[in-house]
């Protein structure tokens, strides 16, 4: 009795049991017919749907791993294309104030253009195939990354640069040994945010003109009135997003052992 009481005082226990109660309530409500199954398929149906996509696939033959890998592949291609272009360009713009001032309005505007609004244009120019999707992701990632690289270089603490100059560092040495490491936290923030953007864009891009990928899966399932499959796909997307967050956090800690993280400093 007392052990149960102490257990229930634990925050995670409270939260998870509440969550479990909600899921159970949903299951019961769906089973007795309070919730319409085509709108709110029971959690057990969703689990079965996961199994169905994982084994026989949906549409028939396209399995969950395929959907996941296709989506992941598109994101990574677009992301890599974007950072390959954005990092050198951003370093250049950030280091030369004139370039920064000249490009500021263009970058600001390009960042406010909703990436998915380019979808129709991409289809006209590059068709409905892979290229369109990868380029859209690249567009979304590119501007976020560029903005962060520029800011990273621009806002390096002048004290660090002065300190380096007193140690006779200049030119490329100064740039490579001082400016670049000091800008790295922001660059990594840019990478994280732009991956998030890519992740958002891909779902929209996959809803048109393909049957492969998690975005296509959930959209395709709807046309077959398979809400259970849609929900299973949504769960898979959530898992993928969660994996990204974990992976990038670990990468950041590995690359920046000296950095406390911008979030920590703010408090």
């Amino acid at each position: 009795m007392t052990t149960l009481a102490t257990l229930l005082r634990h925050p995670q226990v409270q939260g998870l049991s509440f969550l479990a109660a909600l899921v159970l309530g949903w299951e019961v409500a769906a089973d007795v017919g309070v919730l319409r199954p085509y709108q709110f398929p029971a959690p057990s149906r969703v689990v079965e749907a996961v199994w169905e996509i994982a084994t026989s696939g949906f549409p028939e033959g396209v399995k969950l791993t395929t959907h996941g890998l296709v989506t992941l592949g598109r994101i990574l291609q677009g992301f890599l294309l974007a950072i390959t272009l954005a990092i050198p360009l951003g370093l250049l713009i950030g280091w030369f104030p004139v370039l920064d001032r000249m490009t500021l309005p263009v970058i600001t505007f390009a960042r406010s253009v909703a990436t998915l609004s380019l979808l129709p244009l991409a289809i006209v120019w590059f068709g409905t195939g892979e290229l369109s999707k990868v380029l859209l992701i690249a567009y979304g990632c590119f501007w976020v990354m560029l903005g962060n690289v520029v800011a990273g270089v621009k806002y390096v603490d002048p004290v660090l640069i002065r300190a380096a100059r007193t140690m006779d560092a200049s030119g490329l040495v100064l740039f490579r040994r001082v400016v670049l490491p000091a800008a790295l936290p922001r660059i990594l923030t840019g990478a994280r945010v732009s991956l998030g953007v890519g992740f958002m864009v891909i779902v929209g891009a996959e809803m048109i003109g393909t049957i492969r990928g998690l975005g296509a899966l959930i959209m395709e399932a709807r046309t077959f009135y398979r809400a259970d499959i849609s929900l299973a796909g949504i769960a898979a997307l959530g898992l993928l997003g969660f994996g990204f967050a974990i992976g990038l956090g670990a990468l950041e800690r590995k690359l920046l052992p000296w950095h406390r993280g911008l979030e920590d400093v703010r408090r």
């Binding site: 969550l19 779902v203 959930i218 709807r222 796909g233 997003g241």
Partner: peptide
């Protein structure tokens, strides 16, 4: 009570909810 629910739903891109 709300933390796990939010943490569970947060990584899902909003566009994924369009079909639902």
């Amino acid at each position: 009570l709300m933390r796990p629910i939010v943490e569970l739903l947060r990584p899902i891109p909003p566009l994924a909810w369009i079909p639902m």
